[in-house]
């Protein structure tokens, strides 16, 4: 028999639970739910807590329920005891919709990109007004995003997304785990995203002579042909 409480549903005294990351939902929702719950009610949706010391707990998920319990003045709160791994905190907060889960743009499929972009475009105050969902998804899908080190190249896709507010909105849902650039690139699309200097360096490594006169388009042509 295990003596650990991990995984158990327990009725804990409110004083033993300290708040974790506080919830940011509107006060009205907390007040109204607290009135419905009342001081003698039972919170059927439990708070997720971890044990920090004997008889000491901290909220890691469903902090909205905790806030409502505090407002209603419950003496005892129903809680599920979770372990204290960092992943547990992350998944609890994602499942309770307290944080926005992110998509890895380096390896995401077209469907995943489409859903993420759709989400951003449907936020009430989205800064991405006038951005076409279809264009952005098609161009992101075809871009060499496995090599991107940040989201800056999105501004070059010609989808009315400029650095600043608009790019920030996309940073909310996307993150990157870039692969290193391969030594030899012949894919025209990737070459075109590089600067002229980078292209010249690459050509030098391949012992190409007479680079100084060449323009970017010529360099791309040269490297793509190799």
């Amino acid at each position: 028999m295990s003596f650990s409480d991990v995984g158990n549903l327990m009725c804990l005294p409110f004083d033993e639970i300290e708040s974790g990351e506080p919830t940011d939902v509107h006060e009205y929702l907390i007040q109204a739910a607290a009135n419905q719950l009342g001081p003698d009610g039972r919170n059927w949706i439990p708070v997720i807590v971890k044990e920090t010391a004997p008889d000491q707990y901290q909220v890691i998920g469903n902090s909205f329920v905790y806030a409502v319990a505090a407002e209603a003045g419950l003496a005892e709160v129903w809680c599920i005891i979770a372990d204290d791994l960092p992943e547990t905190v992350a998944i609890s907060r994602s499942l309770a919709q307290e944080v926005l889960p992110k998509t890895n743009l380096s390896i995401a499929s077209r469907e995943e990109i489409s859903a993420a972009v759709d989400y951003v475009l449907h936020q009430p105050a989205t800064p991405l007004k006038g951005v076409s969902h279809a264009s952005l998804v098609a161009r992101l899908d075809e871009a060499p995003r496995q090599y991107w080190k940040n989201l800056q190249p999105i501004t070059k896709l010609g989808c009315r997304i400029t650095g600043g507010k608009k790019l920030k909105a996309l940073e909310e849902v996307f993150y990157l785990t870039p692969e290193p650039m391969p030594e030899v690139i012949t894919d025209r699309k990737i070459l075109e995203t590089l600067t002229t200097q980078q292209l010249k360096d690459m050509a030098k490594k391949r012992d190409v002579k007479g680079l100084s006169k060449l323009k970017k388009a010529d360099l791309v042509e040269l490297l793509a042909a190799a």
Binding site: A134, S135, A138, D141
Partner: peptide, 13 residues
């Protein structure tokens, strides 16, 4: 037209 093409690319995919 590129914008139209991208709509149909999405449809095809």
């Amino acid at each position: 037209f590129k914008p139209a093409r991208e709509q149909y690319q999405n449809l095809v995919k």
